[in-house]
Design a protein around this nucleic acid. Structure first.
Lengths: 148, 148
DNA sequence: ACGTTAAATGAGAATATTTATCAACTGAGC
DNA sequence: GCTCAGTTGATAAATATTCTCATTTAACGT
């Protein structure tokens, strides 16, 4: 099942799911496929539509549940937009940041971490201990730059 | 009106509002006061409660509208949490990043920008032009560290 | 102070988004 | 193939957010 869509990214997801004792269902693999092939950040509704196109009837709740699981596993990242909306993007690997085109929401990976070598002294002086961070870059991709 | 709560932060907000031809209403100043005095990131509901405590009856829609205006003006920042929730924090000045305690949601300002001197070559090579960024640090404040 | 006017508010309906429930179904290992 | 825990679909329920419009009010000029 889903043989036609088999690819590195789905194997990657399968591996992580198995590792955690979770099932590789058609719905979950379809979410990976939709997100990865789009190369963009998609809304829950868009993901739902994409999955339905692949599998036929699919419950919306399943999409929400899958995205939650995948976020915990680091397979997808939730991205936030300046307009207040949010979406999900495929994300292979734990510590990758993303850059999103505000025009078409295309996502580029950003493996180097800008804060890795950053000195937190100014906040840690106040008794704070930094444990994690969220970074997202906004910009314009080549295509959207031309169109404008 | 609201004389008792007059403070630097409210004058700051008033100034920006006047500059833009917007009104300094009791509701708007109350939002500033609630957010600033709490020193934390608050949910829309918490802000609504705080404002009602100050002014009595206040429409929830007004809180949403105020937060939208304030975000555009840079008076508040919308923060996102690992659990998927979000909140708003007072933010004086355009380019300030924030660090949030995941325990109590206390917010510390973080004026130095970790990406300011960062080299975007790796993504700009792909035709991308970086225009903005969103950075948020997570951690534990002194109090929450003790409690744990 | 007073009047004028555009901006803002409150109330609640209307939408949109997300979560919860539970019986039926299915992938993974034996 | 059989079994069982994990997963799904359908839909209700709960949350969250936006919209509408009559009424109110801050800001400004006089």
């Amino acid at each position: 099942m889903l043989k036609d869509f088999e690819c590195t990214q789905e194997s990657y997801a399968k591996g992580i799911l198995r590792e955690k004792g979770l099932k590789s269902t058609a719905q979950r693999l379809a979410v990976v496929h939709v997100l990865h092939t789009s190369g963009k950040s998609l809304s829950v509704g868009e993901i739902h539509d994409g999955v339905k196109e692949m599998l036929g009837v699919t419950g919306l709740a399943t999409i929400y549940r899958t995205l939650e699981v995948f976020e915990d596993l680091g397979i997808v990242k939730r991205l936030h937009f300046p307009d207040g909306g949010h979406g999900y993007a495929f994300s292979q690997g734990e510590h990758v940041h993303h850059m999103v085109c505000v025009g078409c929401r295309v996502v580029f990976d950003f493996p180097e971490c800008p804060v890795e070598s950053f000195d937190y002294a100014s906040v840690e002086k106040q008794g704070f201990r930094v444990k994690d961070h969220f970074i997202q870059l906004f910009g314009q991709c080549g295509k959207c730059a031309e169109a404008a």
